[in-house]
Design a protein around this nucleic acid. Sequence first.
RNA 1: GGGCCCGUAGCUCAGCCCGGUAGAGCAGGCGGCUCUUAACCGCAAGAUCAGGGGUUCGAAUCCCCUCGGGCCCGCCA
Length: 446
Amino acid sequence: MEPGGERPDETMRVAGRVKAIRVHGRAAFVDLEDRTGSLQLLLRSDTLGDETYRRWLADLDPGDILGAEGHPAVSKRGEPSLAVGQLTLLAKAIAPPPEKYHGLQDVEERIRRRYLDLLASPETRELFRARTLLLREMRRYLDAAGFLEVETPILLPIASGAAAKPFVTRSSYLDAELQLRISLELPLKRLLVGGMERVYELGRTFRNEDMDSTHSPEFTELEAYWAYADYHDMRRLIERLFEHLADHVREWLPNSPGAERGAKDFKPPFATVDFVDELERRSGIPDLLSKSREELRALARAAGSTVPDDSPAGTFLDKLFEHYVEPHLEALTFVVDHPAATTPLAKRHRSKPGRVERFEMFYRQTELGNAYTELNDPDEQERRFREQLVARGGDTYAYDADFVRALAHGMPPATGIGVGVDRLVMGLTGASSIKDVILFPLVRPR
RNA sequence: GGGCCCGUAGCUCAGCCCGGUAGAGCAGGCGGCUCUUAACCGCAAGAUCAGGGGUUCGAAUCCCCUCGGGCCCGCCA
């Protein structure tokens, strides 16, 4: 069609939100936007009748949701348009939208009133769409690998499977305290005992800790458990998943420099460092595995840690690692074969004494996930839980007696992994705060 | 929990150092304009300057406290 042209024989109907109104006396342009994009409506006094034209414009505000019917046309400046014959107000915007050019800038308002952020910012809409697609792709990938998605309890008598403070609530009916889960691990391993050989859960986990750019009190975790496989198998599975997601994110966020970098960084091969060797190298401290709890505590203190004196030995090793090694883990790195004292749920290493078969993934100084060859010996599991209990201070792995009883019935040798999904989405999209990838992050009530 | 920074109209910002009683753009109102796309032109309106207290003849501005947020540290798989 030529500029100024119109097809009076064709009729089109559209609906969307008014983004901008430009009135020129007896003609007006209205930008209408929906999920597929933006279309210019052309309203003219001469075709609509002056009274109708004036009444419609008088009632029209940015943010209104309209239905429009008319003929395809091209404006004199060449913009594809709809020459409107009928206009229907579908919803009135009483409150104004954010500033039309700068959008919503205030960080707090963008989080507290996410609907306005989404309304004003296509980038925000695209990011959250990408998040959903990434989660869908993780499910597809695991489903195709023969894993079964399951749902396990969020409300539990004792939250265990990790060292963290739980949220506490109550059941009126049971007249009993309940805790919100801090991990998915123990229920999923019970399913291995029950003969479900490949399971995963993708769901919300809760930890009653401080919030910052990489910690949210409720966050999304992926955990997968795989019978008759070990942590080498798991590493191959997760590396292929990362590569798969990296290929997709570039396509879903084609204009995002953050996603461009993420896609590149999540392509294998990835660096590998041995937990103990790397810590000894970076810190200059020899023979870490032969140190007593008291010696480790003194070393952690010297490195500036303030965790309680009666924390378990593994906590001090973790603190030393966080202080000496983590700051160097910029590129995606697999840290492997941790000291046994740090990890009560992992199986002892087949050849390295004092170690477990474990890997952790780090990207930009932040842990993305954690995997083991799972401990399946009930007697040793009980001992390892009890080692945690000698320490009274700090957070420890809560003793879950029924879990030990379940292991006594035989859990197949298996590997398992936990992934911080919000952090993975951050890494793949280049987001710098966990709040940027959670639609409605927890904020202090006003 | 500690340190630093921020909070001015519905939105985006200026004014704060150096105290003199709040200014613009967008949105909203009124008027003009038949080709704009961050439309434009004119007029009028819109602000307990986050809240409270203090210093001062006078506080958005200086000081203290509180609330909310951001960043760093601590704590946290």
